[in-house]
Design a protein around this nucleic acid. Structure first.
Lengths: 130, 130
DNA sequence: CTCTTATTGGAAATGATTTTCAATAAGAAA
DNA sequence: TTTCTTATTGAAAATCATTTCCAATAAGAG
């Protein structure tokens, strides 16, 4: 099975490489259309799943059941806001306890996801309380 | 708005209190049927969402897009297997770096989720390699 | 240039979850 | 206990992200 290079594969990988906002499949699709790139939704799903299998891209599912994707980079973990469902990168170099877990359970930094309420939402929620 | 006690609410909360396997809504529904408890699927979804809002129960979405639920208990985090999608509890008392994050981002221990490959799957995957 | 087959993409299927809304029942008040 | 208000339930239908199917397309080896 020889893999082939296609403009669709190139678009998905390059797009993810050049952004830091953890887009959903739908967002990638919209961006492709905006840029005039011919690509079907199915192909985006398929290409993303392959990239995840290859380990080049990681998949983060937010609590609204939408998958988000991120080109794998080093030394950061993900913070997911349970309110706005945005995903934030957080620098986090190895610490002792997490390293121990990594040895037990086959995880890497980009597999560490913390769910909470981001600063923006915390502010909005507080100021809406009378 | 006065809340009312119902056998459906009681079933969902007590069932979650007495188990440690992080069931999905479907699993809760099957168990109710098995126990002869009259409850519709919609009610399970609705009751679970309310318990999550109240902070009594936490919701963990696995990468197969299925939500799992856990009665909130102290001092543990969750490990999710990306292969079998099972969820494991892991004792993990406060450590310095995570505590710092908790202050920045409004998270608590049960919001810490690590995705990886569990020991069982690691073994299966390794032994299936020729 | 030809040919094989990896890849694409629209349509349809899937499956978890949510919405709608009429029927039911909890529990306060009489 | 009975009545009455309305919170709650649950079946059917809708929603929505994602996957499957499969015929048409195109990468790139020969």
């Amino acid at each position: 099975m020889v893999t082939r290079n296609t403009k669709q594969k190139e678009f998905v990988l390059n797009n993810l490489k050049n952004r830091y906002d953890h887009p959903s499949s739908q967002k990638l699709y919209d961006d492709a259309k905006k840029q005039g790139i011919e690509i079907g939704k199915v192909s985006i799903y398929r290409i993303l799943n392959n990239l995840v299998k290859e380990g080049l891209v990681c998949k983060i599912v937010t609590k609204d059941n939408v998958a988000h994707f991120d080109f794998v980079r080093k030394n950061h973990i993900h913070l997911v806001c349970n309110n706005c469902n945005r995903i934030f990168d957080k620098n986090f170099d190895n610490d002792e306890k997490l390293t121990k877990l990594i040895n037990d359970f086959n995880i890497s930094m980009q597999d560490v996801i913390l769910y909470g309420i981001c600063k923006d939402c915390k502010q909005t929620i507080n100021s809406s309380k009378q």
